[in-house]
Simulated scan of single mutants.
Amino acid sequence: MALLVRKARRSLGGGSSSSVELMILVHYHYRCPISLDLTQELVIAPMGITYDRESIEAWLDIGCATCPVTHAPLRHEDLVPNHAIRSIIQDWCVTNRSRDVERIPTPKIPVTPVQASKLLFDLAGFTRHRDTMS
């Protein structure tokens, strides 16, 4: 287990407020191995390591082509959403809502290159059809 320390503003008696630190136990498996923050949009690499999408994509974008944990080759295309762990973390967030832990969002499913090509092809066809109708 690891501690997550969050500062929160709490109202005191006559309307004044003060900052207090909340210490929340966060299991280390709920943290991204790169950022060490609570993982938000979880993706899993082929070697079984789960990352926060933003952190691992930034890692790959700077030219690192290996898994930061195992050093095995890694590409953007290898990353897939990890719905199982995301559900567990969401449940943990709901359980700790009274401690000001926000539920992690459910990510939108990204469009694949094939889906994007099909959409562009359909749009081009629609545009050609519309132009011939004019």
Rank of each mutant, 00 (worst) to 15 (best):
L25Q: 13
I34M: 01
S117T: 13
E54P: 03
E21Q: 15
V114T: 14
P113S: 11
V101E: 08
H76K: 12
R10M: 14
V94D: 06
T70N: 02
K7F: 09
G63D: 02
E102A: 06
Y51P: 08
R99T: 03
E21S: 15
S55A: 15
L42H: 01
G14F: 07
S87A: 12
A2R: 14
T112I: 10
R6H: 09
L119M: 14
I104Q: 08
S17I: 08
I88C: 02
D52A: 07
T39Q: 09
A58W: 02
Y51F: 13
A8T: 04
T66R: 07
K7A: 11
P33I: 05
Y30A: 12
P81W: 05
E54F: 02
V20S: 11
K118E: 13
A116T: 10
V101W: 00
D100M: 09
S19M: 13
N82H: 03
N82E: 01
P105E: 05
S98D: 09
L38M: 15
S55E: 09
S19Q: 13
R6Q: 12
I89Y: 04
A84D: 10
Y30F: 15
I88W: 02
V101N: 04
S18I: 12
R86W: 01
A45S: 13
V80R: 13
I85M: 07
G15M: 12
V111L: 15
E54N: 06
R103F: 00
D100C: 10
L12G: 07
I88T: 09
T70W: 03
I89V: 05
S18F: 06
V111Q: 15
L4Q: 12
L3M: 10
D52S: 10
D78W: 05
S117L: 15
H83M: 03
I89S: 03
P107E: 06
I104N: 00
S18N: 05
H29P: 06
Y28V: 14
T50I: 08
V69T: 09
V114E: 13
L22A: 05
L60N: 02
A8L: 05
L38P: 11
A45R: 01
H27A: 12
D100Y: 09
I109D: 09
I62F: 00
P81E: 09
K108D: 01
E57G: 00
S17A: 14
I34N: 05
T50P: 06
Q40Y: 08
I88Y: 04
N82S: 01
I24N: 07
N96E: 04
A72C: 11
C93S: 01
T66Y: 07
I49V: 14
G63H: 06
I85R: 06
E77R: 08
T70V: 01
I62D: 02
I62Q: 04
L74Y: 02
D61A: 14
I34Y: 09
G15Q: 10
A45I: 03
S98F: 07
S17E: 15
V43S: 00
S87F: 01
R6P: 04
R97F: 03
S17N: 11
L22R: 10
E77T: 11
P81F: 05
Y30D: 10
F121T: 13
Q115E: 15
M47L: 07
V43D: 05
A58I: 00
